[in-house]
Design a protein around this nucleic acid. Structure first.
Lengths: 115, 115
DNA sequence: CATACATATACATAATCATGCATATTTAAA
DNA sequence: TTTAAATATGCATGATTATGTATATGTATG
């Protein structure tokens, strides 16, 4: 069963649904139009997104309004923070004076070896 | 083929490998010991991680040293930034005065409807 | 050049999963 | 209580993929 945060976002369609909800709640059929797969597929994706806490549901007449919830994004942020030391250019070691230098040399990026 | 950033991290073993590299470069066999799957599996995961830009490789004798690269983490950060408005409690709308109130009412979290 | 060690890859297999189709369920309206 | 609209779910299928085993490639060392 789906429980994982990353696995949830791994599916491109699911990311498109999340994107469709970025500006506020939407009902299923609106999303169907936006993502271009069959309604049953959207409903199943929404179920997964709900199980992982990405969305909330709110009945509205014969409609159901889905909306994004902030928690999983915070979790993501937390995970990312564990690697921030890696990509925030170690200002802690050298002090803020280097910050300016960094901004200038930003074009000189290290390439990953081989190809 | 694997090209996607999220899909790359969707695999738990791959996340464990990334975690194993958090503190610096490691050679394949070290990682094998740490993640507990067969060496061939680790090599394949490393290939994927390399193709998606997560790691760099550096030959060292008959050994190969893998290390994390910052770029994909920055990409994540960028993606996440697109949703920051959602989970950063809209201080922009109400001003910093509400910030204190938020910190107190933080236990009263909105639950996601149904179950 | 032979041998040993480190890493990569081809192949087969089992498992997972996204999707569409058909149908069920829910809710409003007639 | 029919009828229609919105959403959910069971089923079958095709595609992808993670993994182990066996083997190949590369690199040092005798």
């Amino acid at each position: 069963m789906h429980i994982d945060l990353f696995e949830t976002l791994a599916d491109p369609t699911r990311r498109r649904i999340v994107e469709a909800l970025r500006d506020g709640e939407r009902q299923v059929n609106d999303i169907v139009r936006q993502v271009g797969i069959h309604q049953s597929g959207v409903s199943r994706h929404l179920r997964i997104l709900h199980e992982t806490g990405f969305v909330s549901v709110r009945p509205n007449g014969q409609t159901r309004l889905y909306a994004l919830r902030p928690e999983p994004f915070r979790e993501f942020e937390t995970w990312l923070a564990g690697y921030r030391r890696l990509w925030e250019d170690r200002l802690d070691r050298f002090g803020a004076a280097l910050e300016e230098r960094r901004k200038q040399n930003d074009s000189t990026e290290k390439e990953h070896t081989d190809e």
